[in-house]
Amino acid sequence: MSGTLLDDHDVVLFDLDGTVYRGGELVPGALEAIQQAHRRGVAVRYVTNNASKPDQAVVDHLVGLGLEAERSEVSTSAQAGAAMLAEKLPAGSRVLVVGSAALESEVDRLGLVPVSGFADEPVAVVQGLSDELTYRAFAEACLAVRDGALWVACNADRTLPTERGLLPGNGALVELLRAATDQDPLVAGKPERPLLDRAVASAGGSRPLMIGDRLDTDIAGAVKAGMPSLMVLTGVNTPRHLLEARPEDRPGHVAADLRGLHAPKSEVAIGEQPAWSVTVGDRLDLSSRGEGDALGALRALCTAWWSTGSGPVQVEGTDDAARAALRTLDIG
């Protein structure tokens, strides 16, 4: 393989939380990597499962961090959730909004009528993250869903990466309503396809690449959409999570951060590594056979284990270099 990973793609979908930034801080390497993609003329789409902010607020946040961004480059799960409702409901239908003003605005923009209570006779419920939700909001939604209202969740992320650490995400709140109704929502955001498909279509792309930090949303969404993906180790999931990932959650590439987008494809692709050897038995034995880095060891381990099984596995290094790599990866 020659050239960089970016060379094969005409649009790059960047997850935001945990991939581009953590709260109010850019992830190291993100600024340079995205600027370089822009200079190459490759379409950029910022694809976020966070439904709490309008697209302009996302743009303002990105610009405030030093990035280039326009509203057309932002795709949110609030937009995808509202679009899903608009495809299924006639104009003027009443929708109970459990979420932020941004989500309410998206529902209104597509010709539906946002309401806040069961007494308003909603035919649907749409749920997105907001830090201002109250017990009453969930009680009203519970009544509506139990009465047969269509239920759409903007996303199902159980946690939200911030500069303070992991906080409850919309998925945790979806579980609350699921427990109270014994119903399951339709999901608009990752890992389902609507959000990603809309982002690619908006860019007119045919060779997309999805980049994210979460296996169960970013990477699983890419797998469902049939697009290549790059996992970065700057957010929720760890090398151990990657090694033990289910087949439907496995990326084709892994890098420390977004700078991997501009690395040679052979350096970021998950595959056999010249510097590392892995023996599969009751455990994985990692051995060095040249100068290699820890991420190369991770790619070699994933290649060996994924060809055999999935789930928990014991890993041991057979020499000093292998043991050092496993300590760096926190695998052992």
Rank of each mutant, 00 (worst) to 15 (best):
T4H: 12
L6R: 13
L6Y: 11
L6M: 12
D7P: 07
D7T: 04
D8N: 14
H9E: 13
H9C: 12
H9P: 09
H9Y: 11
D10E: 02
V11P: 14
V12E: 08
V12M: 06
V12T: 00
L13W: 13
L13E: 01
L13H: 14
L13N: 10
F14R: 03
F14C: 04
D15R: 04
D15W: 03
L16K: 00
D17L: 05
D17S: 05
G18S: 02
G18L: 04
T19I: 05
V20T: 11
V20F: 09
Y21N: 05
Y21A: 09
Y21F: 15
Y21T: 01
R22G: 05
G23K: 06
G23P: 06
G23R: 09
G23D: 15
G24V: 15
E25M: 02
E25Y: 09
L26A: 15
L26M: 08
V27W: 07
V27T: 09
V27G: 09
V27I: 12
P28A: 11
G29K: 02
G29C: 02
G29D: 02
A30V: 11
A30D: 06
A30C: 11
A30R: 03
L31F: 13
L31D: 08
L31W: 14
L31P: 11
L31R: 14
E32M: 01
E32D: 14
E32K: 03
A33N: 00
A33F: 04
I34F: 08
I34T: 03
I34N: 08
Q35F: 10
Q35R: 14
Q36M: 13
Q36G: 09
H38E: 15
R39K: 10
R39H: 15
R40H: 10
R40A: 15
G41M: 00
G41A: 07
G41P: 04
V42N: 04
A43M: 04
V44R: 02
V44C: 06
R45P: 02
R45E: 05
R45T: 02
Y46T: 11
Y46H: 09
Y46E: 10
V47C: 03
V47P: 00
T48H: 10
T48A: 08
T48R: 07
N49W: 07
N50W: 15
N50I: 02
N50H: 11
A51V: 05
A51K: 08
S52I: 12
S52K: 03
K53A: 03
P54A: 10
P54Y: 11
P54V: 00
P54C: 11
A57L: 07
A57E: 12
A57Y: 02
A57R: 01
A57M: 06
V58Y: 11
V58C: 03
V58F: 11
V58P: 02
V59T: 07
V59N: 04
D60A: 13
D60H: 13
H61T: 14
L62M: 09
V63S: 14
L65D: 05
G66L: 01
G66D: 10
G66K: 01
L67S: 02
L67A: 04
L67H: 01
L67R: 01
E68K: 06
A69R: 05
E70T: 13
E70H: 15
E70A: 12
R71A: 07
S72C: 06
S72T: 07
S72Y: 00
E73V: 09
V74H: 09
V74Y: 00
